[in-house]
Computed example of a mutant assay.
Amino acid sequence: MFPIRDHNPSGRIPYVTYMLMAANIGIFLSYVALFNDPSALNGFFFVYAAIPARISAGDGFGTLISSMFLHGGWMHLIGNMLFLWIFGDNIEDEMGHIPFLIFYLVAGIAAGLIQVISAPGSDIPTVGASGAIAGVMGSYLLLFPKARVDILLILIIFIRIFPIPAWIMLAVWFGMQFVGGIGTDVSAGGVAYWAHAGGFVAGLVLTLPLWLRRGGVGFWRRTHGHPPHPEAVYASSRIPKVRR
């Protein structure tokens, strides 16, 4: 189940979202050749990735930022940029360009620190924009819980696009991160579940002042959880049902 777009158009050009996407893609392209040389790639990640044991020892705090712009492969990058493209523009629209940039970086740093706390002795490098983007998703849940998100559902021979409320998609995603964090050995590497869950909660908490300025529960009553403007309308999906 993959989100491919929302029905929540932004009222201004999301320059910061585009800039963040360009930075992530550009930086990845600058070192993608290192994937052919594991030794060189490990050396690169040792310098710029967030290593919990190193940070726990009081060193490498700058990697909490640099690691946000590194990715472990093409699918890692594409997945993160898809989520940032879907949800980032609306949060930037509500916060403003510079506040959104600060919010993104702070959420990413918080996610990195939570990952360090979850496995303080781990020497496995942590990379990816996932923690910061999880913060954007937490913010989206608070501001637009009933905005419609189009989901691409693939069940073996059944392929369909259909809309669901954002809160369902985001709650399922958060639940998967939380369960994944409980059910895996964090120090063994793999997906940084606690960074994702922590970034999500951090983004939600950081958005509370904005939500309260909008009226808090009153904002939800006025908008019924939907975007406070007309939703985008898309043509019906042309993706066919694939029969046996």
Rank of each mutant, 00 (worst) to 15 (best):
1 M>Y: 12
2 F>E: 09
14 P>Y: 04
17 T>G: 14
18 Y>T: 05
18 Y>D: 13
20 L>C: 05
21 M>K: 12
32 V>S: 14
34 L>H: 01
37 D>K: 03
37 D>I: 03
43 G>L: 00
45 F>R: 12
47 V>D: 07
48 Y>W: 14
51 I>W: 12
52 P>D: 11
53 A>C: 04
54 R>D: 02
54 R>I: 05
60 G>V: 07
63 T>M: 08
64 L>S: 13
64 L>T: 12
65 I>S: 01
65 I>D: 01
65 I>Q: 07
65 I>H: 05
69 F>G: 06
71 H>V: 10
73 G>N: 07
75 M>F: 06
75 M>C: 02
80 N>M: 12
81 M>L: 14
81 M>T: 11
82 L>A: 10
83 F>E: 09
88 G>K: 01
94 E>L: 12
94 E>P: 00
99 P>Q: 02
99 P>H: 01
100 F>H: 01
102 I>W: 02
102 I>V: 13
104 Y>Q: 00
104 Y>G: 01
113 L>S: 07
114 I>Y: 06
114 I>T: 11
115 Q>V: 09
118 S>R: 15
119 A>V: 07
119 A>M: 14
121 G>M: 10
122 S>G: 09
124 I>T: 12
124 I>N: 09
126 T>R: 15
126 T>M: 15
131 G>Y: 01
132 A>C: 06
135 G>I: 08
136 V>R: 08
140 Y>H: 13
141 L>P: 02
143 L>H: 10
143 L>I: 15
144 F>C: 14
146 K>S: 15
146 K>N: 15
146 K>A: 15
148 R>A: 13
149 V>D: 09
150 D>G: 10
151 I>V: 15
158 F>M: 13
167 W>D: 02
170 L>K: 05
174 F>W: 09
178 F>S: 13
181 G>L: 03
192 A>E: 10
194 W>L: 15
201 V>W: 02
202 A>T: 06
203 G>V: 00
203 G>N: 02
209 P>Y: 04
212 L>N: 07
214 R>P: 10
215 G>L: 02
216 G>R: 03
217 V>C: 10
217 V>Q: 06
222 R>W: 04
228 P>W: 11
232 A>Y: 02
234 Y>Q: 07
236 S>Y: 03
237 S>I: 05
239 I>V: 15
239 I>Q: 06
244 R>C: 06
